[in-house]
Nucleic acid binder design. Structure first.
Lengths: 144, 144
DNA sequence: TCGTAATAGTTGATTTTGTAACTAACAACA
DNA sequence: TGTTGTTAGTTACAAAATCAACTATTACGA
């Protein structure tokens, strides 16, 4: 039985993407976990609110590509930890506007700075051109 | 309070990588899940054994970047489903050589072919050059 | 060769995620 | 109105990942 495919796992994009994501993600996870006890989704919610301003849970989910149950739990925990505050929407009482507290803003300022440094370190060995190609390809792949 | 960082989540590599990995990974997951009832780690173990031949659990873990408890459970399940067989090592009775059964080989042949097609579809919109850059960058990032 | 350390792999307890069902509020339209 | 459908968000339960502890075996040094 000869192998009729010359499949190469090392060039299979989902595999490579997953490995690269895990490798880089776990390293950065240490930062927000150690400093603020945050989980990944919590950091992601914080990053969205810090970077794009107040919005609803559904909107975060849509932008971040995260399911609403995960958002719901992350929001609850961020609120519990004092990083986030909710304010009901008068015109549509189903939804709530989510915004960072002072403490949340401070955490975002700190973590986003660390993220920048972390990213700079990651891309240090890549040429400007490669960085541009990589970001473009990833953005395209992430969009589906 | 002016934001003293111009951090952009959209160019933060761990975020982009994670999104691209999820997007592509979940799509391909449907294939091995629907056809063979496999989980991601199980498909990954199958892919390693199918692509590189018989090896031990630890070796798969090291190559695939997966923790041994995940490997252990994936192997147990693949064995249960009849895709994989173990054979003890005489010279070191702690370890076992893992290999695919006929059924496992057939599943690998099928899935690796689908993976190739899936990958081709993913990269269809990318130029040859971009593909090469992407793969190179991802491999470098995955290596840590 | 005895005792200690290291390695292969498994198992159990805890945490986190995923799936589905649920409540509450709004929308559309007869 | 009232009935049906849709959307926002939460919760309950099942599935899976993580972490630590465990057994069995081998390696190594006094």
């Amino acid at each position: 039985m000869t192998p009729d495919t010359d499949f190469d796992l090392q060039s299979f994009l989902p595999y490579l993407l997953n490995r690269a994501a895990e490798e880089t993600g776990l390293k950065f996870q240490k930062i927000y976990k150690d400093r603020y006890g945050m989980l990944r989704t919590e950091w992601r919610v914080l990053a969205h609110l810090g970077g794009y301003g107040t919005m609803t849970a559904t909107e975060i989910g849509a932008r971040a590509g995260v399911h609403k149950t995960k958002i719901s739990r992350a929001v609850a925990r961020l609120e519990l930890l004092g990083f986030l505050a909710r304010s009901g929407n008068q015109t549509d009482r189903r939804q709530e506007f989510l915004g960072l507290t002072k403490k949340g803003q401070a955490a975002y300022a700190d973590l986003s700075l660390s993220a920048q440094r972390f990213n700079a370190e990651l891309t240090r060995s890549l040429s400007e051109h490669d960085q541009a190609v990589l970001t473009r390809c990833l953005t395209s792949l992430a969009a589906g």
